[in-house]
Nucleic acid binder design. Structure first.
Lengths: 239, 239
DNA sequence: ATTATCTATAGATCTATAGATAATGC
DNA sequence: ATTATCTATAGATCTATAGATAATGC
């Protein structure tokens, strides 16, 4: 248990009075996190050696253990941070909107769009969603939003469990699809285009699909899914 | 390239004339496959050492290389075999039913139910669905069934891509959920029950959900999803 | 003096192969 | 004689730690 955890792990700007050594340590930690994020997004936790992380971070090998106890530990930290950053955005969205359908729609559009813009982030978000128990990751936010919609009567569900499963699966499927299609030269994109599939506006179409699963009519869902997106403030140092 | 591939990898009964040595070899291979299947279902390909596979199969370590070139090779073989066995069942279902909705419903009910009965099989099916490109796994069968339904007019889709994504995500989500809930003492099960969630008949409810995504009304979907299941013949040596 | 980093390395783990042993089939 | 298995091991890879070096802060 030799490592020190900085109070608020994600903040970039230090409290001004932060001594130089502490800043240096924080920066090293940050470099390790960033390097691990990219490597593990691409190849998964098991596919990456600590050696590779320190190399990519341009940090001495032994320094890794000044910051993390193990590979599992840094991976867990990364998941925690991706989720926290996502959660904060979600809270921000929730606090500025009334309609539960619009809240969920905004969250979905945000997640899908951001995964296309930043596949490293997206791949990691998917890892958190699939890892261990569902409700420790993405699922908890979805569940909260869905319950809110049920309570308010906006969502009318005959089968809450299946609705939850289906919404979750749809979102993860869309994140995956979006990242397959995002690169301009991807084979997935070519195949899809040959099949005549529409690859525009996937965030909005995902949101609409999700809302229909939750009981809105086609028209209602499309309307909500195309409302103007409120600006979302991002403050992640990692991405 | 020292290994020999038996013609039809999955068959149990040999052509009677098979010499003793060949049978012995086939049985060793089979034991390796079975052991790897269980270990890799639980811990993933990377989490298992070849050593552990031969130990579990009660086979000398070096013998592994009489049958497979690498860990990747045996994993690929396992995916291929799980998928083939699934595909044959799907073909059997397709050939004996007319209604595209019923064909897809039967396939979904079969996959979900069998995952509950045999979590090792289920976990592997999920691995095939998530691995590499979507359409090499489960997806190809779904895509075929959905296209058939569109062609016949049974499914009316405004957005084929999202329908496909959503159906795929829903099925994988249901497979996962079903396996979480299947063990009598699982925590997931307790949590779900405390939330008042209905855990009965998940195969049928998944099928119904999928059909609704594909444009059937609630009532139509429920009716199809509860038709009597035609008997399905299984002939997998591995499970 | 303290703290964070670095280099170097011991030990564990794992893969792939070589060569010996045992069983089969002619 | 051939074939499949086995045991034993060399070599590669990776983790975790020890001890040296450099920078900071008093």
């Amino acid at each position: 248990m030799s490592q020190t955890k900085t109070g608020s792990a994600a903040t970039t700007e230090a409290p001004a009075k932060e001594p130089r050594g502490a800043r240096r340590k924080r920066e090293t930690r940050q470099r390790l996190m960033k390097a691990a994020l990219e490597l593990m997004a691409a190849r998964g936790m098991d596919g990456v050696a600590i050696n590779e992380i320190t190399e990519a971070a341009d940090v001495g090998f032994g320094s890794f253990y000044n910051h993390f106890d193990s590979k599992e530990a840094i991976h867990a930290e990364l998941m925690r941070e991706v989720l926290n950053s996502f959660g904060e955005t979600m809270d921000h969205i929730s606090n500025n909107l009334e309609d539960p359908a619009e809240i969920l729609s905004t969250a979905v559009r945000y997640a899908v769009q951001r995964s296309a813009d930043n596949p490293v982030w997206g791949r990691f978000l998917i890892q958190t969603a699939l890892s261990a128990d569902i409700l420790s990751g993405l699922g908890q936010y979805m569940l909260r939003d869905i319950q809110r919609g049920i309570a308010s009567g906006r969502f009318k569900l005959k089968d809450p469990l299946m609705a939850f499963t289906s919404v979750g699966g749809t979102v993860i499927g869309a994140l995956t699809a979006q990242m397959e299609f995002a690169p301009a030269d991807s084979t997935a994109k070519k195949v899809a285009q040959q099949l005549g599939l529409n690859l525009e506006n996937i965030p909005e179409r995902t949101a609409s699909t999700v809302l229909q699963i939750l009981g809105l009519t086609n028209e209602q869902a499309d309307e909500v899914a195309h409302r103007p997106l409120p600006p979302v403030e991002l403050r992640d140092s990692l991405f």
